[in-house]
Design a protein around this nucleic acid. Structure first.
Lengths: 211, 211
DNA sequence: GTCTATAGCGGGATAGAC
DNA sequence: GTCTATCCCGCTATAGAC
């Protein structure tokens, strides 16, 4: 209430630096077992600062996870909720999804493993987005309507949804396997991923020009 | 060479029990951080026996992993190498893949995470299967030939391969997410998975009766 | 806000008795 | 082959000086 000290400027550089570094190590590099020392070293700060700002490794881990997931979901929902023709919407979705997963390729893998281990944390991680449920229902109705128009193959709308995300996400999850299996370089695999964008649309929609 | 003692009967019950338990915990339940104590408790044996038979946790982990992966790959290769019409082969593949992943749903997730962390272990885990390389090349040629016949959409054969495995594997990897997202019970999700078998074929092949 | 020093414990591994 | 006792280390976390 009275005059607050000047150094109360929140979100100090250090705090943000630690959080960004943790995010990179956990979700970009996929090192979910990284220790507090690993993170501190990578950020170039003393290990105790991590506890000073976040109290425990667990709190930091969950925070980073939750923030990334929430941002990701918000972008997806935004795209799916846009007032655009169905096919255009899916094209945008693929682009946005790619953009996010190139930055955070292990996000999906982590969710899958972590939620299996701690199902009670679902509500903590998947915070309710305003209008989220309605937006999903609306999207599934759109899928249904497209099938009636004959632009996509008849199936349960949920299966269309799963197919869509399977085709997008799996190549990121399984990247290390395919790199070796087909003896590809990183950049060759990235090129393959880029080409897949068109391919995914060709798979989802009936009878279209493809590549 | 001379008369060996009777108690040299290898693969004692205990050894097998520990290995089976570890396999279940690591690959079926997805608890890749399970401690030696966790495994010993689940098997109902003393923790030191684990070291007695396998020397270290790491050795046990790699052994279990490698055995499961090799068995899995052998089954897949067997199916892909069979002398059968292409579509029949893919149908068989989906069935075999499902059978294996229902038993070991976390196999794929583990490979992805573990190989990323220890890329040098690729050769240890992915042992060379006799004729493996030729079989893969032959399969990709078959894919090419099917595209020329017009039964499947034109694309790079590698992309057909990735699409195939994406559609099969992803719903297993992402199971915990979809259970919650669509508020499904375990058995409802299993039913959905079963229905997807037909759906996957419809996605992969052009213009077929679907469901 | 940042450091050093230290407590504390959980987990892997081995020695040695039975 | 199976157990108990013990060692040892890495990692989290905190107290307290600066």
């Amino acid at each position: 209430m009275s005059n607050t000290p000047v150094n109360t400027v929140k979100d100090s550089k250090t705090e943000q630096l630690i959080k960004d570094t943790a995010k990179r190590i956990f979700l970009t590099e996929g090192k979910m077992l990284a220790t507090t020392q690993d993170i501190a070293d990578a950020a170039g700060v003393n290990r105790t600062l991590l506890h000073y700002y976040f109290r425990s490794r667990d709190v930091l881990f969950n925070l980073v996870f939750k923030e990334a997931l929430t941002k990701f979901r918000e972008r997806i929902h935004e795209v799916l909720g846009a007032e655009l023709p169905f096919k255009q919407k899916i094209e945008n979705l693929v682009s946005v999804f790619y953009e996010e997963l190139i930055a955070l390729p292990y996000l999906e893998t982590f969710i899958a493993l972590h939620l299996n281990q701690h199902p009670e944390k679902y509500e903590e991680f998947f915070i309710v987005l305003p209008g989220g449920k309605e937006r999903m229902k609306k999207f599934l109705r759109e899928v249904q309507s497209e099938m009636e128009k004959g632009t996509i193959t008849e199936m349960k709308p949920i299966n269309f949804f799963i197919n869509l995300f399977a085709l997008m996400a799996y190549p990121f999850v399984a990247r290390p396997i395919y790199l070796k299996l087909f003896e590809l370089t990183d950049s060759a695999y990235n090129k393959l991923l880029a080409e897949r964008k068109k391919n995914i649309l060709a798979m989802l929609f009936d009878k279209e020009a493809h590549f």
